[in-house]
Design a protein around this nucleic acid. Structure first.
Lengths: 241, 241
DNA sequence: ACACAGAATTGATCTAAATCATGCTGGCTC
DNA sequence: GAGCCAGCATGATTTAGATCAATTCTGTGT
């Protein structure tokens, strides 16, 4: 049994400040109650704990209440490819729906609290709640477009653009959670960033240094302060031929 | 009105040899009939016709009966990023579900016949056919994993690996359609390939030449014959440090 | 049949990032 | 506190692929 045991916690979707993100806004109170009963809220789990492994049977998708998660897939030759970083309010684990086993592995990057949404039970109740079904398809579509954004980034951009895009993505996602968009702590290592962006650690490190020397950011190890948000943004729209 | 008018054709899902791919296998005959009545079969449309544009309202997803389609998104600076090539039996257009408008643009690469599946009507009937709903989520998940494969490819691989992977992907998808996996015509230009794989046209061209000189493939313009399938496969699993 | 624009190949040069190498720092255990 | 290891930074060198440039091929329309 690889996935950590999630103990029920005394809270619910009604009072969760994430709910606007992971649930459809238009759910009436009684529908929300029914959904509520399906969702299992876990206690915080430690850093570097696996949520699921590639190949594991697909049983649930997960919403993050706090903390951060990294998803990656392992190819036959053993090399890893980071496919995403997930922050509070975001849902991950869709990759398993296809062949009912996960293609990715998910691991916590720091102490993390999750809500587990068992897929079988979700399917049951969604049969009588079409809006829920639709919402989930929309969440999957969102994942699709975010993957396509990453594809665009990897196919075309320079190292600086890639790092700038990641910083801006994190910033806007934190902002959506009413957290500071300009001062935050990177939950992942430079190596993770490099892997995700298709760059070497050294290149990532150099780009961070360069950004500092251009007064775009301040960074002390994993603590980041964005000084010139527009400057970063300009980098992601680099002057093209 | 940008999308081409699709005229009803005298055929149905029962006798379509694609159905195994785009429909759940377990549908009973009466369910299939109901689905059948929702789907609009178009006459073949010409090369370089748009199916939908980025920003268009999302109304339907499309299954390919014959031909080939390219999907791409346009970023603010006007540059394009090819996000996928679609062959017979495959479904595209999911990208619109999220905010009910398409993020991609889809265009035919050659004369193409489509089935249009209007999403609103699909949602109606799927309410009473849970298996259909599940099937569609699986199709979306498949798209997700294929996007993630592309991410892995772009993040890590050399030009040769990328081109080899594309050729093998096309090959296996044609095989699934009971078409020759070793002799086929590329529906897309070198520029499209380059854009998709994050390479320049020149590099793509050089890789094709190199593959020929290594007796991996024969190619005359867009006509491809794969001589050494295992050799290509070996390239995609390049010896790593 | 001809002209012309776009698609593809091939060659020469340049450059951004990988690779190789070294040192620094901060947390860990013993 | 000494020693050790992982993570990060930074410098020197190499290289794969981009860029620039020129030529040939292909198909399309008149």
């Amino acid at each position: 049994m690889r996935s950590p045991t999630l103990n029920i916690q005394p809270s619910n979707c009604h009072n969760c400040r994430m709910s606007a993100l992971c649930l459809p806004l238009t759910l009436d109170s009684s529908s929300l109650d029914r959904l509520d009963r399906v969702i299992e809220r876990g206690r915080p789990i430690h850093k570097n704990q696996y949520i699921f492994h590639g190949g594991d049977q697909f049983k649930a998708v997960y919403a993050i209440r706090s903390g951060a998660v990294k998803a990656f897939c392992v190819s036959d030759d053993g090399s890893e490819q980071v496919t995403g970083f997930y922050l509070p309010g975001e849902i991950f684990g869709w990759d398993g729906i296809d062949n009912s086993s996960h293609s990715n592995t998910a691991i916590t990057l720091e102490t993390t609290a999750l809500c587990e949404i068992p897929f079988a039970r979700f399917e049951e109740i969604s049969r009588t709640m079409p809006i829920l079904q639709k919402h989930f398809m929309r969440l999957m579509a969102k994942e699709l477009t975010s993957d396509q954004d990453l594809i665009g980034l990897l196919a075309k951009s320079s190292a600086e653009e890639r790092v700038a895009s990641l910083l801006l993505s994190l910033s806007s996602r934190l902002k959506r959670q009413h957290l500071s968009p300009t001062r935050f702590r990177l939950p992942m290592s430079r190596a993770d960033i490099g892997n995700y962006l298709g760059l070497t650690v050294e290149t990532v490190s150099r780009v961070f240094s360069r950004f500092q020397s251009f007064d775009l950011i301040l960074c002390d190890k994993k603590e980041i302060e964005i000084i010139n948000l527009n400057g970063l943004y300009a980098l992601t729209h680099k002057p093209k031929a």
